[in-house]
């Protein structure tokens, strides 16, 4: 009697506990640390504000780019990013589906997307119909320099001298759809307004920025947290590649591509970047250290009238 009772109760308990532990496991959580920066900086354990510069000893060639990245980019280009590129479907007049709604974006469904009532009217995008399909450099450009497919070859355009070697703008990601230009010193003078962004564990404040299409905006990014962070701007097409890395052991050993990237912002340090959205769209900014993004260090950068990416809030 005892044995049977124990067996049944045991099996039930084990099953319940397993369900509790695995399918019903609580979400990932890490409380933000209390700051030790002031104390430890005073005792020399961590570097002083502004002391750290960026080394050029280690090149990007040290880190590998997973082979899946290209596949992810292609997939995303074909799916989620479709609305940003009506030209690809051969129908330049199709109104935009809401980005990220998924079914509106698949190539085969482009026609359906065009008739979706909730699709916001964003057909007034300059130059969209002339965007090359796959970022090929030989495609005609609507406006020289606007297309960032060429930016990798233009150091002056791609980097900000005052930010040092860690600041980079990688134009080859996702072909020509990046849509955000990083402006250099001279053009940065055109900045109309300044947006201050604070990074801390584990959030950005503000969590989202809205800019007008074509507006030149200066972002002042400061690490107000306890540990180093980084700041990068990614096109929606990059998100599958990011998601692929999320829990992989080699996260820190691989390279990722971004429109703009500033590595190693030490606690207390800050930097500036001037950007311009060439066309309507949505992008994300984030800290790409493991789990920082999952814990909430991400924000959306959108043009007026565009909805932020779905799944932004993780």
């Amino acid at each position: 009697m005892i044995m049977r009772f124990w067996l049944l109760a045991g099996i039930l308990l084990v099953a319940l506990a397993w369900v509790l532990m695995v399918p019903l496991s609580p979400p990932s959580y890490q409380a933000s640390p209390r700051s030790t920066v002031a104390d430890y900086r005073a005792s020399g354990v961590i570097p002083q504000v502004g002391e750290a510069t960026i080394s050029d000893a280690v090149g990007h060639d040290v880190f590998e780019i997973p082979e899946t990245d290209a596949a992810h980019a292609a997939e995303e280009t074909a799916a989620g990013a479709m609305p940003d590129m009506p030209g690809m479907a051969g129908d330049a007049d199709a109104p935009m589906a809401e980005p990220g709604t998924g079914d509106g974006g698949h190539g085969a469904d482009a026609g359906v997307a065009g008739t979706m009532p909730e699709a916001p009217g964003m057909a007034d995008m300059p130059g969209m119909d002339t965007m090359p399909e796959s970022g090929g450099a030989d495609a005609p450009m609507a406006e020289p320099g606007t297309n960032d497919a060429g930016m990798a070859d233009m150091p002056g355009m791609a980097t900000m001298p005052e930010s040092g070697g860690a600041t980079e703008s990688e134009g080859d990601h996702g072909g020509s759809q990046a849509g955000i230009r990083v402006l250099d010193g001279m053009m940065a003078g055109m900045a109309g307004r300044t947006v201050e962004i604070e990074m801390r564990e584990w959030s950005f404040s503000p969590p989202g920025i809205t800019v007008a299409t074509g507006e030149v905006v200066r972002l002042t990014v400061r690490n107000a947290g306890n540990v180093p962070h980084e700041f990068m701007i990614m096109p929606p097409q990059g998100m599958a590649a990011v998601a692929y890395r999320l829990e992989r052991a080699d996260w820190n050993l691989t390279e990722h591509e971004a429109i703009f990237e500033r590595q190693m912002v030490m606690p207390g340090d800050s930097f500036e970047v001037v950007i311009q959205a060439d066309r309507p769209g949505n992008w994300m900014y984030m800290c790409m250290f493991p789990f920082h993004m999952q814990f909430g260090m991400m924000g959306s950068l959108v043009t007026e009238g565009t909805a932020p990416m779905e799944g932004m809030k993780m």
Binding site: M21, V22, S25, P26, S28, R248
Partner: peptide, 23 residues
Amino acid sequence: LTFRAELTVPDIQFFGARVYMGL
């Protein structure tokens, strides 16, 4: 055995770090 299943081969197959560390 549950978290062992996850460790059998590299990469994440069933669940991530939170579930793993809880187990």
